[in-house]
Design a protein around this nucleic acid. Structure first.
Lengths: 112, 112
DNA sequence: TTTGTAGTTCGCAAAACTACGAACAATATT
DNA sequence: AATATTGTTCGTAGTTTTGCGAACTACAAA
């Protein structure tokens, strides 16, 4: 018998993990926060908010884009970034649902 | 003049990123979900839910513990894990607050 | 005392992440 | 045509993550 460990992760869990991972760096949290409060702005504005080189900022933006949380649009010679509303709300629901799992239960480890 | 780039990340953003990072892997999401719905259980139960070796499970548990999302307690010869309620709720508030930033605004990039 | 059970820790390898400067692309300006 | 502006991409370096098997710890039972 070969490897038959078929217990894969659910797609929902993988999606939630993907969103969480994208948020797993202070620079990316800062970017998202900035965009969420400003609605949208140019690369330079984002770079100004951060203590890192532009190449690194560009990389973080790419990751956020790949996770679907933001979108970019060329407005020569600048690039305008903004929150991807659809996925932002999707992520919000994912996290809400996740945290709602633990509601008013009395557990066996209520202390420390 | 030396390096004076003093624009650090806020503690809140670092904390949120830390929580998000801990949630940034499907195995860890699955563990948290399992614990949240069960309240608490032993290492073996968690290992049974996952398609990975016990050494790897142990590592993921360690990370979740370090992020403060779970806690473990020795109950020889087993180890009982459960959600760390206090920090779970803290994390929940962090995420809620974060996503609430983008409410009903009309932005300049409403479309893809 | 040997054996079992339940997990953790160690050591390793491969891959991914974070960061940077330099080089590049695309357009606008001189 | 040369220069400037705005970002992206490339190449590199160091660190961290993920995963595993093997060795180890701690206690209980035979």
């Amino acid at each position: 018998m070969e490897i038959l460990k078929n217990k894969d992760y659910t797609l929902d869990n993988e999606q939630l993990a993907r969103f969480a991972k994208a948020m797993g760096h202070p620079a990316r949290i800062t970017i998202l926060q900035f965009l969420a409060s400003l609605d949208c702005c140019y690369f330079g504005d984002i770079h100004n908010e951060l203590p890192i080189a532009k190449a690194t900022v560009s990389q973080h933006l790419k990751e956020l884009k790949e996770a679907g949380l933001i979108q970019g649009e060329i407005e020569t010679p600048k690039v305008k970034y903004c929150i991807n509303r659809e996925n932002w709300e999707k992520a919000q629901v994912y996290f809400e649902t996740f945290f709602a799992l633990k509601k008013e239960k009395i557990g066996c480890c209520t202390a420390p």
